[in-house]
């Protein structure tokens, strides 16, 4: 147990074991799968038409918004060119589905139906439609295990979207709470601030929303603020999720980050 917890040598063994576990996971999800297939085929035509109409409307809205995004993206790239830092928009995305099984109730993990055969790799960032969900911690050829950002052993570097303040958001073991550590008492942070990934550390690509600041406490005599945030991702409800493939895997290495930081320092601007 100690070896598994402390050292990385066991990773190979775990990967091997994960290969054996994957078929069992699929087997366990089978009843639910069959049930949802059945209920899908039993849905009434009315319901389906209704939903179809809804989706159409939503699609229209989204594509309208997308047109605007394209223009904004182009503008953003141009401005970044002016600043001399490299823009990293347009990550590629792979869609995966959760396998319907429960893992340990006290660890926030999930199993998805894409594995190394589909190009999933360890450390890949996972999103749902709204925000960052977590990262891949284990891969087998046909499935992968995702650690959610709210797991007590998870932390990710974030940035306050409004002020550019950087921090570390770590999981608390509760599905609706993240905690930001070591923010000085005079930090520029308010309830309602949007937290986005900062891209430092190289795991998560920069600029994806993480959550909203929900509570700020100033414990008397403590040198740091206690800041809590609510994750924006629907961690307990999402079924489809998105795996981010950075445009090239090298694009978010530490080197390029320090480069961006230096550029920013030269220009006396903070990178977003």
């Amino acid at each position: 147990m100690t070896v598994d917890h402390r050292f990385d040598q066991f990773a190979k063994v775990r990967t091997f074991l994960a290969n054996i576990a994957a078929p069992v996971h699929y087997l366990a999800a089978l009843p639910v799968e069959i049930f949802s297939q059945l209920s899908g085929s039993l849905q009434s035509a009315d319901d389906l038409q209704q939903r179809n109409a809804d989706l159409r409307r939503k699609n229209l809205l989204l594509s309208a918004r997308l047109q605007k995004t394209a223009a904004l993206e182009a503008e953003n790239l141009r401005l970044r060119d002016l600043l001399g830092s490299s823009g990293k928009l347009h990550d590629q995305i792979l869609i995966a589905e959760l396998i319907a099984i429960d893992l340990d109730p006290f660890k926030h993990q999930a199993v998805i139906n894409k594995g190394s055969g589909d190009g999933v790799y360890k450390g890949q960032a996972v999103l749902d439609a709204n925000a960052v969900m977590g990262q891949v911690i284990q891969v087998s050829p046909i499935s992968a295990t995702v650690l959610m950002i709210t797991d007590a052993s998870h932390a990710l570097p974030v940035q306050v979207n409004r002020s550019g303040l950087r921090g570390i958001a770590s999981g608390t073991g509760q599905l609706d709470q993240l905690q930001l550590h070591n923010l000085p008492l005079n930090s520029d942070i308010e309830v309602g601030d949007l937290l986005v990934t900062s891209g430092l550390g190289g795991r998560f690509p920069a600029g994806y929303p993480v959550g909203q600041v929900s509570r700020i406490e100033k414990p008397a005599g403590a040198p740091f603020l206690s800041v809590y945030a609510r994750p924006s991702a629907h961690l307990e409800r999402a079924r489809e999720l998105l795996l981010v493939i950075p445009r090239d895997n090298q694009s978010i290495t530490a080197a390029s980050l320090t480069q961006a930081d230096n550029d920013a320092a030269d220009n006396d601007m903070s990178p977003l």
């Binding site: 775990r14 074991l17 340990d104």
Partner: peptide, 10 residues
């Protein structure tokens, strides 16, 4: 442990 993703041996 392998199936539920807990520490090996827990």
């Amino acid at each position: 442990d392998v199936l539920t993703g807990t520490l090996l041996g827990q």
